[in-house]
Design a protein around this nucleic acid. Structure first.
Lengths: 217, 217, 217, 217
DNA sequence: GATGAATGAGGGTTCATTCAT
DNA sequence: AATGAATGAACCCTCATTCAT
């Protein structure tokens, strides 16, 4: 005789589930979290989880997708100042990025599960989701390059650099986790300095060239 | 009657085990690999694995530690040209890095399990191991900065930048996995350009400063 | 707000449910069918199923009982030609039997779930229902025997033979499923020839006797 | 710390498992039996079952295959009296059949799970196994027919009749379950009488023809 | 008449790990 | 040095069934 404990409308329950699941997944990783644990955390029984999310995989993917979307939106919004110069917009993006890492640590861990939450076999799917940010940056860079009068070929070089950029930011945020005393703005400034000069030079077509190896001389 | 299948000296067996385990972990991730599968791959029975490595965790950590060490050594060796200028040494390091990613994909996947091999709950331990490279770079940067006459405080700024540097390299290597047509050297050059100018400027004390926000004016 | 989707009178709903349930049970077997699936097939929610049939078991039994009744009626009706000789009546019964197997495959599968729909733990109940046909035949045989002047004791021998008869028919129908090219009438004729001569002889008191075993001689 | 309770060689354990599983499946049907129950019956834990039989399905199929083989062999052996006339050989087969049903009730129930042990979705596989007996009979009938000088076309008619035969025997054995007071030999004689006359006539080419339907006259 | 939300119970399967030989 | 036999503990998932509306 099923004891119906509390009747909560679907949307709300879904919300609760996502919240708990996100926390658990972020903290322990996909494999280490059991559906039982999540259910208990929500105060429901397992079948409800399956009724709403079909499978553990489904629930996990729902969590990451949402976290991804939130991060992307935060950065996007911060950069959406059409009239302003590119460096300022990038700067705002960086700040938003670190801000998000600080204020939504769980979501952030799901997006960049560097050794904390595992992405396991979801690699492809999660990476696909993750591309969003880099692609967005790529677009901005290309456009900016074109506006500055560079030709399309050079502008297209921006793509891998956007990825490198995001990677640098990610690594810095990771480093930050071990040095929480560092103020966020200083961190952002560091990244900006690190990245902006080189980026600017590259987009302007300046080139560093490798020294001719001794053995080739 | 326990059939002693083949008597193989300890060192050799250990080698075989590490090899198989590394391959399996790199390809499927920690959780998805069973001790059964590894034992079968080696051609031994499970108790042997436990006799040599205590636990699954121990075996896994042995794999990552070794992979980590190999990558580190490769980069270190490449940079060990005392007389040469810093830019050249960094350049060589970058090339060695990408080279390693290309030629020892399995080891590389264990070190940077971006969604393929999971690090799962070993986050802390693996990250600890992983620090090696960035720390090494940090040391080099600091020393170079001192040699260039900068004071120690400024030099210490190099640390987070070294992390950012490695992060950028990692992201670029990831991007590379999706664009294998790109020649490795071009990639390395891109990273060098991206990173070197900014790094140099930073180490020289030049500073990009954020625009004063409108609302503060 | 509980959305009352469609108000359908009880009898009609019951009909729909039985139809869907029969189809599902016949195709996948009792255990492999979930109440969810049936409810969805009908376009109702599960509680309705329970309101009408109490339990899964109840629903299933309702399906088989009905299928059983239909088959029985078909054969009965076909044999109900009081004036005609017994062989003709039996012949008509056989034809009706195969006809039913062909035209109401689902119902037939529920009655004789040879490896398709499982009867599972309902063995006793379903077998009880299934007896109907054999018992009916028994009655006819007995009556015919009496009419032919045989005494009651011999007539009673008809009972097991009636079962054997039905078993032979069933097996032949199963064989038919693998040889659908065979015309139904030919099949019926085969069965009739197979069964009628021996049956007639038996009812007439003729006897085949086993050879005296060598070891007894 | 796994408490190794008793060490039993593989072959023996396999035997135990098959025995228990057969009993359980025969009595309650596939779905109603849990691996837990079987394991407990054997005095082992579940993983051992999986180590030896891969899956519940595998275990079940191993049971039925063996039961099938045993029954077939019993009947085959009984009929293997090359010099003797066909009727005697068939008679011996029938007796062996009922004998088996009586003495190995569990195995028999697995082969003909008429409402007791369910064959569920294994229909095709089990039926395939089951064909053996009928096919064997078919062969014997054909050969006998040829020996009696009938032409091949008529002889081939034997196939469906062999199935009908086996079906009749099965039904009779089922009926027997409800009338255990009946001596096995009498049952066999009944079947023989029922079946032999008709079969003989058919193989001799005699034909019962349906009466011309009234409406066609 | 009808529904959405909920549950308890259990089933198959897999795994890391170990004892006895 | 090596193995075959064994286990305890989970885990994912599904199902029949019901309460509150």
């Amino acid at each position: 005789m099923p004891q119906t404990r509390k009747r909560v409308p679907r949307a709300e329950r879904e919300e609760q589930m996502l919240e708990v699941a996100r926390r658990e997944f972020a903290e322990h990783g996909y494999e280490a979290v059991s559906m039982d644990a999540i259910a208990e955390g929500v105060g429901v029984t397992k079948p409800m989880l399956y009724a709403y999310f079909d499978s553990k995989e489904g629930l996990f993917l729902a969590c990451t997708a949402r976290a991804q979307r939130e991060l992307e939106e935060a950065v996007r919004d911060a950069m959406a100042h059409p009239g302003r110069p590119l460096d300022e917009r990038v700067w705002r993006g960086i700040v938003a990025y670190f801000d998000f890492a600080e204020r939504h640590r769980e979501a952030w861990n799901l997006v960049y599960p560097e050794g904390s939450a595992s992405t396991e076999r979801f690699g492809s799917q999660v990476r696909e989701q993750r591309k969003g940010l880099a692609e967005h940056l790529t677009g901005i860079f290309e456009q900016a390059a074109l506006e500055e009068g560079l030709d399309a070929d050079v502008a297209r070089l921006g793509a891998p650099l956007a990825y490198a950029f995001v990677g640098a930011a990610l690594a810095l945020a990771s480093w930050w986790a071990d040095h929480p005393e560092e103020p966020k703005e200083l961190l952002a400034m560091r990244l900006m300095n690190f990245v902006w000069t080189g980026l600017g030079a590259t987009l302007r077509g300046e080139l560093w060239l490798p020294p001719i190896p001794e053995e080739d001389r």
